[in-house]
């Protein structure tokens, strides 16, 4: 049976209320911010965002915050541990009747891929291991964005970053495959995980609604089209985000207690259409076409879906 949305069937059902208000210092067309804005509509205002160093740290700059909920900036490597401290303290204070249940908060880690895939992996693994009741929202712009777009272990093969330039020795730019954080999380057996895209708002909000039923760690990996880091016009964010999904490059899926369901099965346009829109892949097409690199990327996507199709409805 195909995956069915239960709570959000039509765009009109997405709450109109905003919980992340506009006017922040983030780049125009930031796909990650759009994903967060949508997520916040489901999370509501009884939330504390526990932030790791990255682009989104500049959301709250004294004396402003765009959030209706609370915010705690921690470090690049320990936001999940911050979430642990807050969750534990809320539990203890409620149990000791120093805080009423109405005061309770959803605890949401808000971190980039550099934090999520690299520096905070130990803290994250430990939080999942302890079955911490929290949301983990990773806006994945596939690089260390805040420091000027350097390679992270989420950077895909073939992308240029400021530390993986296209060169004689490395014509492809980045030479390693993107780390599979979804699989790493899944090995920990959390109750809920999903990948999302801001270009698929109903899919995104539905997943947040579904996740709310589960106590324990809940991962949201949002591919975050990043005009600044990936090199495209901010007006193109939705198109880049759309093609990431339509080419099969970014599969939309969820895993409930480890069982994976693809929530949208694209017709799979050639991955080249996605790559061509972005300056970080331009060296694959100009001055000469790097056929092998492009084919390798396409083959990886095809192989993924062939493997996944066994499990598809």
């Amino acid at each position: 049976m195909a995956w069915q949305r239960e709570t959000y069937k039509k765009i009109k059902q997405i709450p109109a209320e905003e919980y992340v208000l506009p006017g922040t210092a983030l780049c125009a067309g930031c796909g990650g911010l759009e994903a967060l804005r949508l997520a916040a509509k489901v999370l509501g205002e009884k939330v504390v965002y526990v932030n790791a160093a990255g682009c989104f740290t500049l959301l709250a700059v004294y004396p402003f915050t765009p959030f209706k909920g609370s915010w705690l900036y921690t470090t690049m490597g320990s936001a999940p541990a911050g979430a642990q401290g807050i969750r534990d303290a809320l539990d203890v204070l409620i149990a000791k009747h120093r805080l009423s249940k109405e005061e309770d908060l959803k605890v949401v880690v808000l971190a980039g891929d550099g934090s999520s895939y690299d520096m905070a992996l130990s803290a994250t693994s430990a939080a999942i291991y302890r079955n911490l009741d929290f949301y983990y929202f990773c806006y994945d712009n596939e690089a260390y964005g805040n420091t000027g777009v350097q390679l992270s272990s989420a950077t895909p093969y073939g992308a240029q970053t400021s530390t993986t330039p296209c060169s004689l020795h490395h014509p492809s730019g980045a030479v390693r495959e993107k780390k599979d954080l979804f699989a790493i999380w899944r090995a920990h057996k959390p109750p809920y995980m999903a990948t999302v895209s801001p270009r698929h708002p109903l899919d995104l909000v539905e997943k947040f609604a579904r996740a709310a039923r589960f106590a324990g760690p809940k991962l949201f990996l949002a591919l975050s089209a990043c005009p600044t880091g990936w090199g495209f016009d901010p007006a193109q964010t939705t198109e880049v985000a759309r093609l990431a999904v339509e080419t099969g490059f970014w599969p939309l899926k969820e895993a409930i207690h480890g069982e994976v369901t693809h929530t949208y099965v694209p017709k799979r346009r050639p991955v080249e259409e996605y790559l061509r829109l972005q300056a970080r892949f331009r060296h694959l097409f100009e001055p000469t076409r790097q056929e092998e690199v492009i084919r390798h990327i396409q083959d990886r996507v095809t192989a993924y879906w062939e493997q996944a199709s066994a499990a598809l409805p």
């Binding site: 205002e45 709250a60 705690l72 900036y73 805080l99 109405e102």
Partner: peptide, 12 residues
């Protein structure tokens, strides 16, 4: 940190 009194801590 509580629902009735949101606050931002450790801000830039």
């Amino acid at each position: 940190l509580k629902a009735s009194a949101p606050q931002a801590l450790g801000v830039a």
